[in-house]
């Protein structure tokens, strides 16, 4: 499933684009393990509100991060229409709650532009860069920032 990127063409990559509200984001397809429908998560005590809880994915316990809430955009009350993108972040596997998957994009790295200063600090923390696609603006998510670091422990 993840073998779709041909070795040797490092400058091109495939991205999965998804929507949160009216904004479009994407992550490298190589980090995405699977996409599944929303199922109720078991809430975790004393966690930031963007941590929806944990689910069972074939025997593994995965935390679900509401990406919209993480980016400070919206806090969605998940429904069956929402999807969870299961992604690898380093050694960890987590689920990202998003509104819908919109596209698979094959693009070149040099089209990515740095996040402009007008963006809020919160967005800049999680967005690696931007690029234009058929008139739309798509933000590349920095997955390694998505998990709470010390926030949860402080909470």
């Amino acid at each position: 499933m993840t073998d779709t990127v041909t070795p040797g063409v490092a400058q091109r990559r495939e991205l999965i684009a998804f929507r949160i509200g009216d904004q479009e984001f994407c992550v490298d397809i190589m980090s995405v393990r699977e996409i599944r429908g929303w199922a109720p998560a078991t809430p975790l005590p004393r966690t930031p509100s963007f941590v929806k809880g944990v689910i069972n994915l074939r025997g593994a316990v995965l935390p679900i991060i509401d990406l919209g809430a993480r980016l400070g955009l919206t806090t969605s009350e998940p429904t069956a229409r929402h999807v969870i993108m299961v992604v690898h972040i380093g050694e960890r596997t987590i689920g990202l709650l998003v509104d819908a998957v919109s596209d698979i994009i094959n693009m070149s790295d040099d089209l990515v532009q740095p996040t402009p200063d007008v963006a809020s600090d919160q967005v800049k923390t999680f967005v690696k860069g931007l690029f234009a696609l058929e008139g739309r603006m798509v933000s590349l998510i920095a997955l390694d920032r998505v998990l709470p670091e010390t926030e949860a422990e402080a909470a």
């Binding site: 004393r46 966690t47 941590v51 593994a60 316990v61 995965l62 935390p63 949860a152 422990e153």
Partner: peptide, 8 residues
């Protein structure tokens, strides 16, 4: 394994 320790 996938998240972090939670007190309690």
């Amino acid at each position: 394994a996938n998240y972090q320790h939670i007190h309690g």
